[in-house]
Design a protein around this nucleic acid. Sequence first.
RNA 1: GGUCCCAUCGUCUAACGGUUAGGACAUCAGGUUUUCAUCCUGGAAAUCGGAGUUCGAUUCUCCGUGGGAUCACCA
Length: 488
Amino acid sequence: MEPNTTPKKIVTRFAPSPTGFMHIGGVRTALFAYLFARKHNGTFILRIEDTDKEREVAGSIEQIQESLTWLGIDWDYGPTKPGPFGSCIQSERLEIYKKYAQELIAKGLAYPSPYSAEEIAAFKQQAIDAKKPFLMRNHRPETFDDWDGTRPLRLKVPEIKRYTWNDVTRGELSAGEEMLDDVILIKSDGYPTYTFAHIIDDYIMGVTHVMRADEFISSMPKFLSIHDALGIAYPTFVTLPPILRDDRTKKLGKRDGAKDILDYRADGYLPEAMMNFLALTGWNPGTEQEVFAHDELVAAFDISKIQRAGAVFNEEKLLWMNKQHLHKLSAEEFVAYLSKNVPDHLKRIASFTTEKLAALAPIIRERINTTAEFATMAAAGEYDFAFTAPTYETEILRWKNDENVSAGLPRLREAITILETADFTSPETIKAALMPYAESVGKGELLWPLRTALSGRAQSPDPFTIAYIIGQGETISRLKTACDKLGE
RNA sequence: GGUCCCAUCGUCUAACGGUUAGGACAUCAGGUUUUCAUCCUGGAAAUCGGAGUUCGAUUCUCCGUGGGAUCACCA
């Protein structure tokens, strides 16, 4: 049957199995289906394919929804939002699959498997010994028993032929009859297989574009033969490229260390950065724009620019992408972002306040890609100066041109005098007050001991910013402490 | 093994037969700077191989090579 080409509202779906957390690959599939639907003002459905009780992991459905919601992917129908077609959870649609199964039985196109697992294993062994492909259709019984629901129901393949179909990203594809078999439609536990259930649901839910990873290409003849048996039209197929491991040897999967997408949230990645980055692996806008906000992505998304080849997930570029989105945040948004992710190290400092954090925010922003990095830097004491007077060896106060540490003493004393009457309304005003003197003695000669006296570190933000953050009183106090130490 | 899919810098990718093969990340080298960071400039870096079609192939065809997917009462 030919694809339905009459223009109609686009409907896509993301149909995960609740078998654990979501990783990059699954999320990217969801994202493409979502972007395509939103771009064309279509419908996006989140369907839960929980037909394998063995593999089901408790809490997965909630985690899937939480992951998508975090990224900013919403759905029109989902687990808690049934559609006109009923529930979006397959285990709640068993009667529907049975109805279609009965239809196939009535047409003589489905039959209960008469064999035990042992008998099938024996058939398989025979095929292996004879070096021939193992196909159940070669063991089809002469006559079909009635189906009482306790035995698996198999498809009687309607036609053994080579299937050719069209794929939006891959063009014309085809696969031969060796892929066609009497596949199981309903398992002995009463649940349908993926092969059967997804076709019926896509049909009933009006899915126009089936977007999924390329691992399903080889199963297409089976899927198509079921469409034919059912007498329903094919949807449009859109194959997505795989996401590969770093070493390119495999598809990225949970067992290869693919992280839970929510771990990225914990590390302080912005959902828009993650969405942006994911959109760019396996797709590109055809322009040189790389940083996209959610709505820009929806507007730019073009199904015809989906890649064919697999892509390696590049964490370093994701880091860079997050920084780009961090810089798009307003000052208030950035402070809110930091406040939600205050490193334990800073929380333990008694004088920590969110006001101080806000003052510190601009210099943090240019130093981090994620809050995970913020935590690492904080743990190393890099931001302690904002909250507490530093402890340090006096040697750190020595500018490289000075022959000894105390050479800086008179300069610090002069700086104190200047700062006692300086304007502390911004780092710039402080700088303005100090620079004439600094230039007269040599910038490094004053600025190095000044900065290290304030931060207690060889490497830190500039002294004017530190002075501004800690305030006039604390600035002078720290400089006097330094002078005292040098005077000893 | 059978069948199917894929192939441009290390990585993500652009170039709908004609470009000095472009951009980004990473990397290297300079510069700004009181240190770190930021920022700026520049460099190096790719069409898997071989035929064919064509005046001309990254682009089209075929073969090879390499990689991947799939052959379940899993999805």
